[in-house]
Computed example of a mutant assay.
Amino acid sequence: MQKVRVQPNAQRSAQTRQALLVAARSLFVEKGFAATSTPELVERAGMTRGALYHHFRDKAEVLHAVLEEEARQVAEEIEKAAPANTSPVDALRVGSVAYLDAMAVQGRTRLLLIEGPAALGADRMATIDEGHAAASLREGLEAAMPGRHVAALTNLLSASFDRAALDIDGGDDKKAVRAAMLFLIDQVVAPTP
């Protein structure tokens, strides 16, 4: 007699949740949040609506989880880009390119900069960003230029980075946009006379 190996509940639950998130990401990128229905989401995931509502309160909560994961991955790429012994200014420059590269992952710009703000609102998106890429940017600016309006500069540069990602996603010259972002970083962190 052959033994049947049963997965622990926690493992099955994690796999179900992950399948729902993968399906949701795919649909949100293809169709957008508003045009994606929960029945097609569970069908794409090969799950039931009961499984969806066991893990998530509603479709907006699914989107929030997808966006958290996307934002986490962007921040991880930024953090990995600069070696530990890099100067603060060089870390900002390397992190700038890493952000643009991370945002070039298919669908990520649409999710984080279009679907997320439209569906969840600016405040919730700011909270997600603050826990990830904006935190990296703020820390980099604090290290490179302590005491120089870091909070305001973080917000302004963050908006510039988002615009750059949208431009690249829209087909603008990637090298030119990167060069412009690096120029902007250099101007911001330049010593004041």
Rank of each mutant, 00 (worst) to 15 (best):
Met125Glu: 01
Pro83Thr: 03
Ile128Asn: 00
Glu69Trp: 08
Ile114Gly: 11
Arg44Gly: 12
Gly95Pro: 04
Val66Phe: 09
Ala98Glu: 11
Glu43Ile: 03
Pro83Gln: 08
Leu112Asn: 02
Arg57Thr: 08
Ala104His: 10
Glu139Arg: 14
Ala75Tyr: 08
Ala135Trp: 03
Asp101Pro: 13
Tyr99Gln: 13
Thr109Leu: 10
Asp123Phe: 02
His54Tyr: 07
Ala102Gln: 11
Ala102Val: 13
Leu41His: 09
Asn85Val: 02
Ala98Pro: 07
Glu115Trp: 01
Gly116Gln: 00
Gly107Lys: 06
Val105Glu: 11
Glu115Lys: 04
Gly131Asn: 00
Val66Ser: 01
Gly116Leu: 03
Gly95Asp: 06
Thr38His: 03
Val66Arg: 01
Leu137Asn: 05
Glu68Met: 12
Val94Ser: 13
Glu79Leu: 14
Ala134His: 05
Pro39Lys: 14
Arg44His: 04
Val105Met: 12
His54Leu: 03
Asp101Thr: 13
Ser37Ala: 08
Ser136Pro: 00
Asn85Leu: 04
Met125Leu: 00
Ala91Arg: 14
Ala133Asn: 01
Thr48Lys: 07
His64Ile: 03
Ala119Ile: 00
Pro88Thr: 08
Arg93Ala: 03
Glu139Asn: 09
His64Asp: 10
Ala143Arg: 13
Gly121Cys: 02
Leu113Ala: 08
Glu40Ser: 04
Arg44Gln: 15
Ala82Ile: 00
Pro146Met: 06
His55Ser: 09
Tyr99Leu: 14
Ala75Val: 12
Arg110Gly: 13
Gly50Asp: 00
Ala126Ser: 09
Val42Cys: 13
Thr86Gln: 11
Thr127Glu: 13
His64Arg: 14
Leu52Tyr: 02
Met125Thr: 01
Ala71Lys: 10
Val94Ala: 14
Met145Ser: 05
Ala45Phe: 08
Glu70Trp: 07
Asp90Pro: 08
Pro39Leu: 15
Ala81Ser: 15
Ile128Ser: 04
Gly131Pro: 05
Thr86Phe: 06
Gly116Arg: 00
Ala122Asn: 10
Pro146Ala: 06
Pro117Ile: 02
Glu130Leu: 02
Ala45Asn: 13
Ile78Asn: 06
Asp129Cys: 10
Ala118Thr: 12
Leu137Glu: 04
Ala45Tyr: 05
Leu113Pro: 05
Leu112Arg: 06
Pro39Ser: 15
Thr48Arg: 08
Gly46Cys: 09
Ala98Ile: 11
Ala133Thr: 02
Glu139Thr: 07
Val42Phe: 10
Gly46Trp: 07
Gly140Pro: 01
Leu92Ala: 11
Leu141Gly: 04
Met145Asp: 03
Pro88Asp: 12
His55Gly: 10
Arg72Ile: 10
Ala133Gly: 00
Ala122Arg: 08
Pro146Lys: 06
Leu41Cys: 10
Gly131Gln: 01
Ala45Lys: 06
Asp129Leu: 11
Ala143Met: 03
Val97Leu: 15
Glu130Ala: 07
Arg138Tyr: 03
Ile128His: 00
Pro39Asn: 15
Met125Arg: 01
Glu40Trp: 04
Asp101Gln: 15
Leu52Arg: 07
Ser136Glu: 07
Arg49Asp: 00
Lys59Ala: 10
Ala144Met: 08
Met145Leu: 01
Ser87Val: 07
Glu142Ser: 12
Pro83Ala: 09
Thr86Glu: 15
Glu139Lys: 11
Tyr99Ile: 15
Val105His: 12
Glu69Lys: 07
